[in-house]
Design a protein around this nucleic acid. Structure first.
Lengths: 364, 364
DNA sequence: CTCGCGCCTGACAACGTTGTCCAGGCTCTA
DNA sequence: TAGAGCCTGGACAACGTTGTCAGGCGCGAG
């Protein structure tokens, strides 16, 4: 420690009181009582509507009047209240994005891509994480609707979205992302999970593997189910009967994924390759395999950072989160423009990136 | 392709038209004209205020009346308009977070942690990415203020935040995160960049290194400047004079980081160790070092996923993004409660995680 | 000189909700 | 049984903004 400052014992945080007390600032006359256009008008000696015109850059104001209004705005620190504006105009210039977990490296870039599109259309983005909980998804979506977002992007956690019907009827543009909507008819933009998984598994088969494990998320999640379907399709195409012990579903937390991997690598006829159903599973499986001497092939769904620097480098089926988000957001604004009238299903292709781990031969 | 569906030539997207045309849905009577409490009241045969009471769970409504109102709400698909509510009540139950880039793995978890705190307080979170552009930061912050967010978390891109003074005076709770505010007095929660960098560099020195490179971001960014200061402090403490060629500042894009690293590794007296100033620099340096035979020690600021599985595993100075976000958000709600009245500077400790790359001896 | 036209400006209502306040009907007690 | 008090329900204003519309003023043409 270079400075002698009090330290909180429990957290180790240094706490440095600053000079000004906030109470002093709060004693200002206007706390919690912001200036309105009326105040600006009074100060500038003009009418209310004239202030509105200046603030919105509408024509029909003398340069001199405009200057007086601007000065009053500056002096009072006026900022237009968008809530009132929204109430009057009907549109909020904001859209909502409900996803699973913003901390997941798959969703960060997706959200950012959506934000850029929104920005290009002058809209703000409100994010919400459902934590894969259908009730929380609905709660979030309805909260966003109550704020009258112009549009909604939803990565569904639940499988019944009929609760959205009144909203859609009322004009809320809606696009589902990554997974289709449940029981309603709506735009959806997703990756080709089935094809990607099928090709990934076929790649392993092409390298000589027959006993191939699959570790994936709960089958109630559409992408997880599709990837499992792809796995089965590839195995079926190759005429390989799948054994139950090769498949692990519904595991999400690292510890259980680890156990699942260890189990299918044990026994008299262990799997010689593993297909990992998403980025989190892939990372855990990499850790398991790193501790073993016998090489096991691995292909993961979703690319992960630094995958190319591991030994062996990790072969993946990559999907492009940013494109997913951008495409969905563009459709959403298309709906708002009135350009896009027919709900569609847009499926983005995946890409197999071979780096080494998927090309290991079977070790038996 | 398993299904015969039209494919967009340019993008490879499959486009599947769905059955219902949106136009049909739009033909409903209420498009763009949502039911209001007045409509609900009319339908239920009660007064406006009674509907308000039911919607807000206020007491003083007979079970029978309540049921009638609920039925009307259900039938009409009514959803309270929060814009109007906000206008009346003054608080929006939403907070804003302006950060650099949501796609960066450092900010995802931070944002998520903030969201959880906000949720616990019944508030929504609006994110915005400044892309490290001061003008865009200001634009975003003011847009959030216009929506009357109750509070603001800002990871500053600029170094002058006097534009926020009227907002703070008007009662917008404000906490700066990761970097202090410029020219105003406000709460700030940050990591101990100086101490972390100093300890990381001292660690390299303790393992015998004297020629140590530093690659960091633009010094106008507070964290970057602090980390550079930490580097200089450690070198100074060890009595090692620092040569200009060991230091690279202001580089951000991978290609230039790569060139900077290559340069300081060339010449007659190359550096034997590198201290990387943030997670993106670390990743690029790892790539550079991976292509070299002579081992070079590396310590990075910020932890990165899979760092432990690389060869050598990467030693880092870790900061906890989630704790940073959580702490800041809690202070923000503390301000809103009126609990916290004095602006403070809270500095969270960093943690040196030794994994191998930082313990390599000098190779000369 | 007067009329008309155009430009600037401002008064007013409305957006949908909530806080205030009052009216009417009911129950309970004296 | 009458009065007091409580409980339920509703009328009304207000929040801050924008759309509508009309008034006033200056200037040019007849």
């Amino acid at each position: 420690m270079d400075r002698r400052t009090p330290v909180d014992d429990r957290t180790g945080q240094r706490i440095v009181p600053e000079t000004t007390r906030r109470a002093d600032r709060l004693s200002g006359t206007r706390y919690g009582n912001r200036p309105t256009m009326k105040d600006v008008a009074a100060r500038a000696g003009v009418g209310l509507k004239t202030v509105s015109r200046v603030v919105n850059g509408e024509p029909g104001v003398t340069p001199d009047t405009e200057r007086r209004v601007q000065e009053a705005i500056e002096a009072l620190g006026f900022r237009r209240n968008d809530s009132a504006r929204v109430l009057r105009k009907g549109r909020t210039a904001s859209i909502g994005l409900v996803l699973e977990d913003l901390a997941d490296p798959f969703y960060g870039p997706l959200s950012r891509a959506v934000e850029e599109v929104a920005r290009a259309h002058g809209a703000l983005l409100i994010n919400g994480s459902s934590a894969e909980d259908p009730a929380r998804e609905q709660e979030l979506v309805l909260a966003l609707c109550a704020r009258r977002v112009d549009g909604l992007l939803v990565i569904p956690a639940g499988d019944d979205h009929r609760y959205l019907e009144p909203e859609i009827r009322a004009g809320v543009a809606t696009v589902f992302v990554d997974r289709p909507a449940g029981k309603i008819d709506a735009d959806v933009v997703l990756s080709d999970s089935f094809g990607g998984a099928r090709d990934g598994v076929a790649h392993l088969i092409a390298h000589g593997h027959r006993r191939i494990g699959f570790i994936g998320d709960m089958p109630r999640i559409h992408t997880a189910a599709e990837r499992l379907r792809g796995y089965r399709a590839a195995m079926g195409n190759a005429g390989i009967p799948v054994e139950d012990s090769w498949i692990s579903l519904g595991v999400t937390d690292p510890e259980r994924v680890r156990r699942a991997a260890v189990e299918m690598l044990a026994g008299p006829a262990p799997v010689t390759a593993i297909f990992a159903g998403n980025n989190r599973v892939t990372v855990t499986v990499i850790r398991v395999l790193a501790g073993r001497s016998r090489p096991v092939a691995l292909v993961g769904f979703d690319d992960i950072e630094l995958a190319d620097l591991l030994d062996p480098a990790v072969t993946v089926v990559a999907q492009d989160a940013a494109t997913l988000g951008r495409t969905a957001a563009e459709r959403l604004f298309g709906q708002l423009d009135g350009t896009l009238l027919t709900p569609e299903r847009i499926e983005l292709p995946t890409r197999l990136i071979t780096r080494g781990s998927g090309e290991l031969p079977p070790a038996d």
